[in-house]
């Protein structure tokens, strides 16, 4: 009798835990399915072309199910791409330098002090970055460049750069640390200076990890909503310089979704933006897999 209950228990828990695993798959598929279902409405129900959505800057969707407006999201897309690109441009050199400092120049300070500090700052809520950006950075940019408003691509880029810095730094640090010590010994043995070892041997060997870190930072920047929305100005126009305000995908969703009618053209167009964000994050995962996979092959094959 006792044995029977033991086996019953075994099967019960095995089943339950497997169900949980399965549930995660279902959940992910459900998220994807709902996004596709809601987001594709722009193209099916309201008959807009994908080309219009991606490349037209004429954005005036109707907030009802009648349709007939226009859904060109190019301004939002350009806004997202330019702020993220700028953030990457600012953050990458700093991140690489910090990662090299942590792993090659002063590993002791790195592990005991620098690393925990960086990890601490991964956890800072994005609204705090946004708030500080709004109250400190935006006025500073306004005064520094003598502008009417400080809301700008630059402000968004800087806020995003500070946010993704810890992400890139920790991934790159791990990549540098996993470069075999033998390479370093060999190069030092030939009379290389530390910088030559870093630049010519360690960084090339850590390349896949470096790119993975950069892509992960980019992914984080792309998905960030509120911090950017607070400093970008939310002005629906293409940015003419890095000092001009614009808007982006996440800011549009965050500020307009609540007021729009469910199922209306406006609402559906916002869902299409969410779908686009989802697809971009899938693309980033795909790229990371490609890089990591290729990095493994490169070791055995010729370059």
């Amino acid at each position: 009798m006792k044995e029977k209950s033991l086996f019953w228990k075994e099967h019960f828990w095995h089943g339950l835990i497997s169900c949980c695993g399965l549930f995660v798959i279902v959940l992910t598929l459900a998220i994807g399915a709902f996004l596709v279902y809601k987001g594709s409405g722009t193209f099916t129900t309201y008959g807009h072309s994908i080309f219009e959505f991606l490349f037209s800057s004429d954005w005036s969707p109707v907030d009802s199910s009648k349709g007939g407006g226009s859904v060109g999201a190019a301004i939002f897309i350009v806004g997202s791409v330019s702020t993220c690109g700028l953030a990457l441009l600012i953050a990458t050199p700093f991140s690489l330098a910090a990662a090299i400092f942590m792993s090659e120049i002063s590993p002791k300070l790195g592990t005991r002090f620098f690393r925990p500090a960086v990890e601490l700052f991964v956890g800072i809520p994005s609204v705090i970055y946004g708030w500080v950006g709004l109250t400190t950075l935006v006025p500073a940019i306004r005064d520094l460049f003598d502008l009417n408003v400080g809301y700008s691509v630059l402000a968004a880029g800087i806020v995003l750069a500070i946010m993704i810095f810890p992400t890139i730094t920790s991934v790159v640090t791990d990549a540098i640390k996993s470069v075999p010590n033998d390479y370093r010994k060999a190069a030092y043995g030939l009379g290389a200076t530390r910088w030559q070892v870093i630049y010519q041997i360690v960084m090339p060997a850590a390349k896949p990890g470096v790119f993975t870190g950069i892509i992960m930072g980019l992914a984080r920047a792309f998905g960030e909503a509120l911090a950017v929305a607070m400093v970008i100005g939310r002005m629906r126009a293409f940015p003419t310089s890095i000092l001009s305000p614009t808007t982006n995908l996440t800011a549009a969703i965050a500020s307009d979704m609540g007021g729009s009618m469910d199922g209306g053209e406006y609402n559906t167009a916002l869902w299409t933006m969410a779908l686009l964000l989802f697809l971009i994050s899938l693309l980033f995962i795909f790229i990371i897999h490609r890089i990591v996979g290729k990095g493994g092959v490169e070791k055995n094959e010729s370059k």
Partner: peptide, 9 residues
């Protein structure tokens, strides 16, 4: 060195 350690080049 003890272990052959060519660079990945």
């Amino acid at each position: 060195f003890q272990q052959p350690n060519p660079f990945p080049k």
